[in-house]
Computed example of a mutant assay.
Amino acid sequence: MEQEATYRGTVYPWQCDHVGHMNIMWYVGKFDQANWNLFARLGLTPSYLRGSGRGMAAVQQNITYKRELLAGDIVEIRSHLLEIRDKSIRFRHDMINADTGEIAAFCEITGVHTDRSLRKSVLFTDDIREIALRHLAEPAEA
């Protein structure tokens, strides 16, 4: 299933390291921005999280780097929900060089739905589970 972009931006010169390509800290930052757009699509909006006292915590994150990104490159991230469980979701972000269409990196993350005051995992609401089930998708081959 084709997904809309969850992030679109530019690689700036100050995001590049001594080798001349985007430093790994910026990959993580761009993937993090995509997280919040994906979460909002699933009903985990800022107003829901604030109003319910809930949060999302990453418990595992694996990044695979495929191609360099250089200053001036336009980056797009497309996100795919891979799995929903009672208290957690697993999803993948594909970071694409928008000019070449090549996957520059991909990231798979497991996130847990939490009660911020109890600091414990909690069940997703039925509404969020229903939305998430409609968003389950297979990622593009890398």
Rank of each mutant, 00 (worst) to 15 (best):
G43T: 05
G111S: 15
H80G: 01
N97Q: 10
E138S: 14
L38I: 13
R129T: 10
M56Y: 09
E2P: 15
Q33C: 12
R116Q: 07
L38Y: 12
V19W: 08
A137W: 00
H135P: 03
E138G: 04
A40G: 15
F91W: 14
I131V: 15
V19N: 14
I103E: 02
V28S: 04
G43E: 08
E4S: 12
V112W: 03
L123W: 01
G29M: 08
R129Q: 13
I74E: 12
I63R: 03
F39W: 14
M25F: 06
K120V: 12
E4Y: 03
H113R: 00
S52V: 02
Q60E: 15
F91P: 08
A34Y: 06
D32S: 15
L69D: 04
L70A: 11
T6C: 11
D94S: 09
I128V: 14
I109V: 14
V75K: 01
L82W: 03
G51E: 13
A104P: 01
S88E: 06
M25V: 13
T114V: 15
R116N: 07
D115V: 02
R116E: 08
R54W: 11
P13I: 14
G20C: 11
R41C: 12
F106K: 01
R78G: 13
T100Y: 04
D115R: 00
R78V: 15
Q3I: 01
S117R: 07
V11A: 06
G9I: 07
G51M: 11
A140V: 10
T125E: 06
R119I: 01
M1L: 12
I74G: 05
G9Q: 07
D127L: 08
H18W: 09
A5D: 03
H21P: 08
L123N: 11
T110Q: 07
M95K: 00
A105H: 01
Y65T: 07
T100V: 04
T114Q: 02
Y7S: 01
L133H: 06
M95H: 00
D73M: 09
P139K: 01
G9V: 08
N23P: 05
G9M: 10
H80P: 02
F31L: 05
P139Q: 00
T64H: 11
T45H: 06
P13R: 06
I128W: 01
T114D: 03
L118V: 09
L123Y: 02
H135K: 10
S47C: 08
L42A: 04
H93N: 05
H80S: 11
V122Q: 05
L118K: 15
W14I: 07
C16V: 05
L42K: 02
E138L: 11
K30A: 13
L133I: 02
Y65L: 07
N62C: 09
R129N: 05
T45F: 04
S121C: 04
M25N: 10
L49E: 11
P13L: 13
T114F: 00
L44C: 12
V11S: 04
F106Q: 03
N62I: 13
E141Q: 15
K30L: 13
F31G: 02
E2L: 15
